[in-house]
Simulated scan of single mutants.
Amino acid sequence: MSLFKRNPFGHILFIKKWLIRIMAVITHQRYKRFNKLEIEGSDIIRSLPSENVLFVSNHQTYFADVVAMFHVFNASLSGRENTIKNLGYIWKPKLNMYYIAAAETMKKNLMTKVFAYAGSISVERTWRSEGKDVNRQVKMSDISSIGKALDDGWVITFPQGTTTPWKPLRKGTSHIIKKYKPIVVPVVIDGFRRSFDKKGLRIKKKGILQSMVIKEPLEIDYENESFDSIIEKLEYAIEQHPSFLKVISKKDLKAIEEENKQREF
Rank of each mutant, 00 (worst) to 15 (best):
M69N: 02
I45S: 00
S42P: 01
Y98S: 11
Y62V: 09
N74V: 01
Y89C: 08
D65K: 10
V53R: 02
A75D: 04
A68V: 01
N52F: 12
G79S: 05
N86A: 10
D43C: 01
N52E: 06
Y99I: 00
V67C: 02
K85T: 13
I39T: 11
V53P: 05
R80T: 01
V66Y: 14
E40D: 12
Y99P: 03
D65N: 05
I90T: 07
S50T: 15
E38W: 04
E38A: 08
S50D: 15
N58W: 13
P93S: 06
G79W: 03
G88Y: 08
S42E: 02
K85W: 10
T83E: 15
N96R: 11
I90C: 07
A64D: 03
N52H: 07
S76M: 10
Y89D: 05
P49T: 01
E40I: 09
K92S: 15
V53A: 03
I90D: 08
H71D: 08
G79M: 00
V53I: 12
N52S: 05
G79P: 03
A68L: 05
R80A: 06
L54N: 06
V66R: 03
A75H: 08
G41Q: 00
F55W: 11
K92R: 15
F73W: 15
A68M: 10
Y99T: 03
S57A: 15
Y62R: 11
Y99A: 07
F73L: 15
A68F: 07
I90G: 04
S76V: 13
I84N: 13
L37S: 10
A68E: 05
N74W: 11
I39C: 07
R46L: 04
G88T: 09
S76W: 11
M97N: 09
Y98P: 10
S76C: 11
E40R: 12
R46P: 01
F63K: 01
I44P: 00
V53T: 06
I90W: 12
V67W: 12
N74C: 07
L48W: 12
T83V: 03
L95T: 07
L37F: 14
G41Y: 01
R46C: 05
E38Q: 13
E51V: 00
G79R: 02
T61P: 13
E51G: 00
K94G: 01
L95N: 08
E40Q: 13
G88L: 04
L95A: 11
K92M: 10
F70Q: 13
L77H: 08
D43Q: 12
V67G: 00
L54D: 08
H71A: 07
K85G: 11
K92V: 05
N86W: 11
L48D: 08
P93A: 12
A64P: 06
G88N: 15
Y98T: 03
K85L: 11
N52P: 06
V56P: 10
T83F: 14
N96L: 04
L54A: 14
V67E: 08
K36G: 00
